[in-house]
Amino acid sequence: MRLRDIPITAWIGIAGILLACFCAIFAPWIAPHGETEIVGNVWQPPDGQFVFGTDNLGRDILSRLIYGTRTTLLVALAATLISFSLGIVLSFTAATSRGVIDQILSRFNDLMMSIPTLIFALVVLAVLPQNIVILILVMAILDSTRVYRLGRAVALDVAVMDFVEAAKLRGEGRSWIIFREILPNTLSPLLAEFGLRFAFSILFLSTLSFLGLGIQPPAADWGGMVKDNKDGIIFGISAALVPGTAIAALAICVNMVVDWLMKRTSSLKGGRGDA
C-alpha cells in the first residue's frame, strides 16, 4: 500500500480519529480545566478564556468535551468491536454448519430482535449494577443481533462457493473456513456495516446517557453533555450543540475511513467487486 494512494477524504477521517484518540489519551494534560471543576458562571458564552463557553453548572465545555472523548470513544469502539466479533463468529458458524445449529442460533437471534432495543437495554441496565463493563456488554450484545443477520446472509453466499468446498475436502477445520476462506470475501459489506454500527453505538450511548442509564454524572460523555445542556437551547445557548457536533464529526470521520477501506478491499485484485 502506498500512502499517496489514500484519498483525501480518508486522510481527513484518519486525522479526525487520531485527534479524538489523542484527546482521549492525553485528556488530563491538554484540557485547560478539570473534568468536574466549576470554573465560571452558568452558560457563559464562548470567549477567550472558555473557547466553547461553560455548561449548565459552570464547567468548561472544552475540558468536558476532551474528557468525554475517553468514555465515548472507549464505550462505542469497544461495544462495536465486541458486537462484530460476536455477530460474525456466530453467524458464520450458523452459515457453515447449517441444520440444527443454524436453526437454534437464527431463531434465538429473531427472538432477541423482536424486543425493542432501547426498552431491552433500559430493563437490563436498570437491573444490573451500573458500571462501564456491563454497559459495553449490553450494547454489544444488542448490536450483535444486527451483525448476525447481515453476517449470515453474506456468509451463505460465499459458503457455497467451490473454494470453500475445496477447503472442506482438504479437511480444514471450521475456524480456518470461517476466518481464512469466508471472512476475507465478506469484508466489504461487513466494513460498511462497521462504520454504520459505530456511529449508531455513539448515538445509542448518547441516548442511554441522555436517559440517565449510560455514563453516570459527574463523568463527562458527549451524549450526557447534550442532555445536560439541552434546556439552554431554548434560551439561545449553543452549549448543547458543541458535543452534538462532536458526535456527528466523529461518526463522519469513521465512515470516511471505512469507505476508503471498503473500496480498497473490493478493488483488491480479485476482489468480488461488490460494495
Binding site: 462457493m161 467451490d162 473454494f163 475445496a166 475436502l169 482438504r170 470475501n185 483488491l268 476482489g271 468480488r272
Partner: peptide, 19 residues
C-alpha cells in the same frame, strides 16, 4: 482426504480470490 484431490470445472470459483 490427502490421497483424493479434486479439480473443478470453473477455476475462478475454485480458488479463494483473496489468496
Amino acid at each position: 482426504l490427502r490421497r483424493i484431490q479434486m479439480i473443478y470445472q470453473i477455476a475462478d470459483t475454485a480458488m479463494n480470490p483473496r489468496q
